[in-house]
Design a binder for these strands. Structure first.
Lengths: 403, 403
DNA sequence: GTTAGTTCGTCTTACGACCAAACAAATTAG
DNA sequence: CTAATTTGTTTGGTCGTAAGACGAACTAAC
């Protein structure tokens, strides 16, 4: 059934075709090698229709016949798979201490994953644009060598991004009103593909939804664990941004009115009591952004050594985090909340307290309330989601132009 | 563009037809009397297509030609309006101290609005089903006399309702696992229309979205102000229920760890510091549910008389409410948060403090952050939304069977 | 080796829905 | 009374899917 609540846009044949192309494409993505007959039987589409759709997709090199046939009774089937080779989607994550670049093919297979350090906190926006553009050009060069058509470039930024791709505020980068999308397109000399910008949490949750072990869940939330804490929200299978695109900006929810002062001037914000800063407060209160990762490693080392002070601090952070997750659980009721960023490395000591606090405060703990888990995608989640976002439009039937 | 992210359901012509019927229907709903030519010009559909669609809708008595023509150059147009007369949708709200019944026609015009007192807190579920069924029968009788086909009956309940229409928990009614939808259908002897059950906050926000002054907003939240506090959430133009249907259950979010004890055993829940109970704490700590409304009137009277104690208490409730709204604003970023229930009567004294607290705590106060307003739909919002919910399926193109 | 049965994918035909353009109808402007 | 204008229907065409027939290719069994 077509979702008709999209507004007063009328539908026509092109929409039907697009919808059915998307159905076939997604079916093949999820059911590895399969035959036209399989598709017809499972989707309810007519065999002839499937043939026509598949022909279109093969023409555009989105599908490929493997030639392989199975060994069953009856005429053997020509199996179909996603054709990974002709396209690539690029995602780049800008962070306080590093840049990450990822490229994936149509099936989501990682083609490359690069990481380089980056002085995000001290670089000017112009320098950042130049650095991102340089990294992008290297990726583009590589993709060109592999003769791949680039579907687009998405940049993940830790901050508020409006619909036009402008960064409204990125506190940890010190940015304000940076037209990153436009500047980057200019720096790349107006490439023939879209250049998008989005919030890192939003993109990370997209990555979890597409590639993570909880991908089946249509309601999930991703929590970034960096200097700031932000949430990406998927409800009913789609990213939800809110009225102005700022949904999930939970870093400054007040968790404890008597808590420590936050950078924002208020007291007891989630970011102040459960963010990376709260973790490092006890071991390295003056750590510079460039030193975050080694500092976290040091915290983990001390925790493994059962340093009482660090264990205590991590348990407190976990409890505070659990209180924040409980709020999310009560407001949004997602099936899963996924912890990302530096929480991953600290999970063994943070997670138990957080889960306990969540259970204590959640409304419907019986019969499977919100689960709290740790991301398995690693530091590259946002970059991976940035690339994945470009696959979404293809998955919804907007095929790339035929070359 | 059709939203194709609805899953692997293939589309066909029936879907196109349904989508376009919905487009025409919604256009006529919003543009009062209009001609076929108007519809074609505004929607982009072809004139011939519009004629065909309109013919279908007139056949099913959803539209009617008014015969009236305008006084312009050229051939006069035959104007079209929604035909209100042949259908009715019924909504009933069950609450602690009253039952409300509302019936609306296709255009949303109220056909009747009844309210009767009801001892919700002491009645057994069986008694409640009997009372609701009796009320429903009276409404059905009236609709029958007007020769209207009933599109359905939706019941609003203050509690957790699962997808099947079962009430999982309704604390203030003392219910647990009541199959209200099934029982009611049985009591009405399997009527030929759907009997639905939903959470009161969810239905109230639907009413606000369809009939309220902020209906243009696609991201809005409604807060019930009864003994409990719950939220209905609309994001991207549709009701969002979360993974298990419990989104918006914000009554037991902790606002103040050092606050008073809540009925749930925890401390400083939103419900405990900003619910009706917190308001009455100061004037009538032992009020029974049946006396809620007069008690609130009394509070308002004292506030008008500038009773210092009451004004102070209301300001405190307002501030706590504002903290809760700020949390919602940061998590969901809606354009508007609408206060309903008894907050409406107390708004003059509660709202200023709430707005101040919201402004202090919201992330993006510049350039139009979340607005906090008071419902104008009155106590019947949930019942109205219950009826309106039945119109939604028609608005999305699923026309009623031809009689 | 031959025959039957099965499954795959294409081909043909039909139908439904939309669009474009022509056209008839009804009214105003001059 | 004629021209201009606007409305809504009619006609013809296109597109995409459904239904069913058909040939192709293979296995199984006698």
């Amino acid at each position: 059934m077509i979702n008709t609540h999209t507004g007063p846009q009328p539908a026509d044949f092109a929409d039907v075709r697009a919808a059915n192309l998307a159905v076939v494409l997604r079916f093949v993505r999820e059911n590895a090698p399969c035959s036209r007959a399989d598709i017809a039987a499972s989707t309810g589409l007519n065999k002839a229709t499937v043939s026509s759709l598949v022909a279109d997709l093969v023409d555009r090199r989105l599908l490929r016949e493997t030639g392989l046939t199975e060994n069953r009774v009856g005429r053997p089937a020509t199996m179909l798979v996603l054709d990974g080779s002709p396209y690539a989607a690029i995602g780049i994550e800008v962070n306080v201490d590093y840049l990450t670049a990822v490229a994936v093919d149509l099936s989501g297979t990682e083609l490359l994953s690069w990481r380089r350090s980056f002085a995000g906190a001290t670089a000017t926006p112009n320098q950042a644009v130049a650095a991102v553009a340089a990294l992008a050009r290297r990726v583009l060069n590589r993709m060109g060598k592999e003769a791949r058509q680039v579907l687009g470039l998405t940049v993940a930024v830790p901050g508020l991004v409006d619909v036009s791709g402008s960064v409204r505020i990125a506190p940890n980068l010190g940015w304000r009103d940076v037209d990153l999308s436009g500047d980057l397109a200019k720096a790349l000399r107006d490439p023939g593909f879209p250049v998008l910008v989005d919030n890192d949490a939003n993109l990370a949750v997209l990555a979890e939804h597409r590639f993570g072990p909880h991908g089946g869940a249509d309601d999930l939330v991703y929590l970034t664990g960096e200097i700031g804490v932000g949430a990406g929200v998927i409800m009913d299978g789609r990213l939800r941004r809110g009225g102005q695109g700022f949904a999930g900006e939970i870093g400054h929810i007040q968790i404890d009115p008597s808590g420590p002062e936050c950078r924002c001037g208020r007291r007891g914000c989630l970011e102040a009591v459960a963010g990376l800063g709260a973790v490092l407060q006890h071991t390295a209160p003056d750590a510079t952004p460039a030193e975050l990762e080694p500092e976290i490693d040091e915290v983990a080392r001390l925790a493994r050594g059962e340093d009482a002070g660090v264990l205590d601090a991590l348990a407190t952070v976990g409890a505070n985090l659990g209180r924040g997750v409980a709020i999310i659980a009560n407001v949004l009721n997602p099936e899963v909340v996924i912890l990302g960023g530096y929480y991953v490395a600290l999970a063994p000591w943070v997670l138990p307290a957080a889960r306990e606090e969540l259970a204590r405060r959640s409304f419907a703990p019986d019969s499977g309330g919100t689960r709290l888990v740790v991301s398995t995608l690693g530091y590259g989640a946002a970059a991976l989601g940035a690339a994945a976002r470009l696959l979404d439009s293809i998955d919804s039937g907007r095929l790339p132009a035929q070359t």
